[in-house]
Amino acid sequence: MKCRTCGSKAVINMRQHKLALCKPHFLEWLPAQTERFIKKYEMFTRYEKVLVAVSGGKDSLSLWNILIKLGYQADGIYISLGIGEEGGYSDLSRQLCEDFSLDRNQQLHIVDVKKEFGETIPQFAQRTRRGKNKACSVCGLTKRHVMNQVAQKFGYDVLVTGHNLDDEAAVLFGNTLHWAGEFMLRQAPVLPATPGLTRKGKPLCRFYEKEMAAYAILSDIDYIYEECPYSIGSTSIYYKHQMNLLEHDNPGEKSHFYLRFLRAKDNGLFAPPEIIKQDLHECSNCGQPTSGKDVCSFCRMLEQGNEHLERSQVN
């Protein structure tokens, strides 16, 4: 197969775009498309401070690499979750993020969940109602809280994550199966800032996961290949597999599913956001916006953890 641009040997064939490219042209094409999506969805400009959430995985490190190459002011944030033994999953992913930032001379904020809040994610998951058999729920809540906290504290204009099209299509697939309309309304390439909440963007939301893995490999980005132990057998991976079965028979199906959803939303298929707008107020403990009565979900989870610790110490 030949590169459509120069006719030399292709390294990737993107059937949904009917586009095969060689290494140099793929490494030009992907950042150029990223730039196009950043502008199309008005995510951020070169005058704004960008905070990239990095996990050590292929998507987030590739995103950081692309933004640096495109000339954006992009710093990183890594959240150490305490998953795995010493030298295991979290330690390895942290090391990869630190090495990446040092190699490129970029600032990396590191937040260690255990040092900051007293327990690791697996410990929270064990001790709280939210976490019973659902470490991913505790993890997501903690990451959202910490990322926004750091973005607000250091005055970043936008927080970006490495979610790719497979991630977005899998979430949409799950929300559609369960008619979770409220969640569907909040799914978008960019979420504007509101008081206390930093703007969020997903510059990779139009790329297939395979394209992002190819970019990481061809760019020699050292990323964590090992899966998070809690994601093995997860629903999101199951949904991705189902979407890929459809994609295999009908190239472009994943992309159409996501893009037509965005278009339908723009065309008013769903209730306008102001109708379901939640009444947000400051959490009495941490000050971050919450729709809860008094404290936010994250602080409630911390309280449950602390109550459990106190009970254990008394017993």
Binding site: D166, Y225, C228
Partner: peptide
Amino acid sequence: LIEVISGG
């Protein structure tokens, strides 16, 4: 073969 699908 390099697996490209990850969870989370």
